[in-house]
């Protein structure tokens, strides 16, 4: 991690009609940093990620990525998106394309990489996520965990400077969550800058450099995982964590199972 900021949200406001989904969010990601976003349903976490690469335009405030303002109205937004990988809760693989083509479609159409080079890149990434044997399968033939690993490979194929993850494991069966988290952990260890919305508190605790807590469209608390998980200053944070079944270190997995 360096002190060099790569993604900066400055007082970002986003409204849907009367509803204020983001109510003045300021947050900075430094190069190589892993930041986990946690917070209750509907608090605006997904909206923040969609604003980060201008899938949704912001109403007020600014977002800066690598020194340039992210604006949905400009065609330069595509340059921003190329360099920001995004992973979705529902994978969103392209069902009409094979696993290999899912991964090469970005490099070939956007980066204008030749087919041979794109295939080679895709195969390396498939090996990295442990799915070399699935290159010619269609997404529907894969388990959720496998699909999500392909989705990660698809994003990585653009060689992004930053990865956005929106609850990448919350649509998965419990037994496949681990394989996805371990791919993400590997990425983090390799120094990838990551902004991860997650309810996997164990992952946040072990992998995140910082945790930001969201509530009602605002960051209500931000700090190192240890601080947040053992020593939250804000009452809403403590409520939220206990609601998730987090009663301090080690107790998490047990109480989570009880809740389910």
């Amino acid at each position: 991690m360096t002190d060099d900021p790569i993604l900066i949200f400055e007082s970002v406001v986003k409204r849907y009609g009367d509803l204020t989904a983001l109510d003045g969010v300021s947050l900075t990601l430094r190069r190589g940093e892993v930041v986990c976003l946690i917070g209750p349903s509907g608090s605006g976490k997904s909206t923040l990620l969609r604003c980060a690469n201008a899938l949704d335009p912001v109403d007020e405030g600014r977002i800066r990525f690598d020194g340039h303002e992210v604006k949905s109205t400009e065609s330069s937004v595509r340059l921003v998106r190329q360099r920001m990988g995004m992973v979705f809760q529902n994978f969103e693989l392209f069902p009409h394309l094979t696993v290999l083509r899912n991964i090469t479609i970005g490099p070939t159409t956007v980066l204008k990489l030749g087919h041979a080079a794109a295939d080679e890149r895709a195969k390396k990434l498939l090996a990295k996520v442990g799915l070399s044997d699935k290159a010619l399968s269609y997404p529907s033939a894969l388990s959720g965990g496998q699909q999500q690993r392909v989705a990660i490979a698809r994003a990585l194929a653009m060689e992004p400077a930053l990865m956005l993850f929106d609850e990448p494991t919350s649509a998965l069966d419990p037994e496949t969550i681990g394989e996805v988290l371990s791919v993400m952990k590997t990425l983090a260890d390799e120094g990838m800058t990551m902004l991860v919305v997650t309810h996997e508190m164990d992952f946040a605790r072990r992998v995140a450099d910082r945790v930001a807590v969201f509530d009602k469209g605002r960051v209500i608390e931000e700090g190192a995982p240890q601080e947040i998980f053992t020593n939250a200053r804000v009452a809403r944070t403590r409520d939220f964590l206990s609601h998730l079944g987090w009663h301090g270190e080690g107790a998490a997995s047990v109480s989570k199972r009880e809740e389910a």
């Binding site: 690469n53 190329q82 529902n90 392209f94 970005g106 159409t109 956007v110």
Partner: peptide, 19 residues
């Protein structure tokens, strides 16, 4: 989500639609 996934790769609107 399919549109978003394609846009998130940096594809042009025409490519998102056609491909």
């Amino acid at each position: 989500g399919q549109w978003n996934a394609a846009y998130a790769l940096g594809m042009t609107p025409a490519n998102v639609f056609l491909r």
